[in-house]
Design a protein around this nucleic acid. Structure first.
Lengths: 154, 154
DNA sequence: GATGACTTGATATTCTATAACATTCAGGGC
DNA sequence: GCCCTGAATGTTATAGAATATCAAGTCATC
């Protein structure tokens, strides 16, 4: 699924929050105010955001929070599949398909820093097959492709 | 190409060093004693090794070197294609095919930490095709698959 | 032997992440 | 209601990974 560059961003955040809320109710996990707020902040920047950027935003207008506060919330959100970590950037992005837990596969634009999450089954299948061909059982995978997006090439 | 678990490790290191030496002569880049030593240390642990582990080894029996010394050497080795960085581990491994510059695609065993570099053209092609299908030009990619290797499953 | 480009040394700092322990909070059983 | 328990958050300190900056050394070439 491709993240569009222009859209109603507030609505987009709201949708993500509501989806998370609903999924947590189903799973009986706790979508606390802190976790909700961190997820909101991750979505608020429609690009990968670092943990310390989240920390700064979270600290605005109140006592500065400590790193574990942010990392624990992010850990929860990743565990639930609401957020993915981009290894090559040490940063985090909201997941475009939170209903199904999965490992994210990403395109990263080296010009504008936008990311596109690829939820393509075929790609996943090829990767899993490659693992088996090399004698490994498959657990999970990270795929991060760097390139230049359509917008930036024009 | 699969890294075997048991083999003549000294010979394996020696081969890698000689190959690097030769390639640097061809490219007229400088394979200095420091860079050679760092490459040797990376190969000496037949698993991903962190920059600070290299630093510790490099410092044995002499004044402790500073981080930039190690990182600059690693940057050179990566640039030349002698070493790959494993993003998900913040660690480095010797490249099994230094003659051809390429991005590494890896299997990582979550039990024994061994890595297998996959130099499969077909996998690369699929990834590049996925990039194009999403409207991106292709620059490079990281693929790191976690699983359990054949040895550890038995 | 002077010049300039590259390499390495040295110091300090930034950025990323976790360990360990204290406190607070929500929900269940009495 | 009250206590208990486990989960979540707060707090302090530290570990781990990487880079910025400037100084000093090396080496080929003029």
């Amino acid at each position: 699924m491709v993240l569009k560059h222009k859209h109603d961003h507030d609505a987009c955040i709201e949708t993500a929050l509501e989806a998370a809320q609903k999924i947590c109710e189903e799973r009986e996990t706790r979508f606390t105010p802190l976790r909700r707020r961190v997820l909101e902040l991750v979505w608020s920047k429609h690009e990968p955001i670092t943990a310390y950027e989240v920390l700064d935003l979270l600290s605005e207008g109140q006592k500065r929070v400590a790193p574990p506060t942010v990392y624990r919330a992010l850990d929860f959100l990743i565990e639930e599949g609401f957020v993915h970590r981009i290894e090559s950037l040490n940063a985090f992005v909201g997941c475009s398909d939170p209903a199904h837990k999965h490992q994210g596969h990403f395109m990263i634009c080296t010009k504008c820093s936008n990311v596109t999450e690829m939820n393509e089954r075929s790609l996943h299948d090829v990767i899993e097959a490659a693992a088996k061909a090399n004698g490994y059982s498959y657990e999970n995978s990270i795929l991060e492709i760097a390139g230049i997006c359509e917008n930036c090439r024009n």
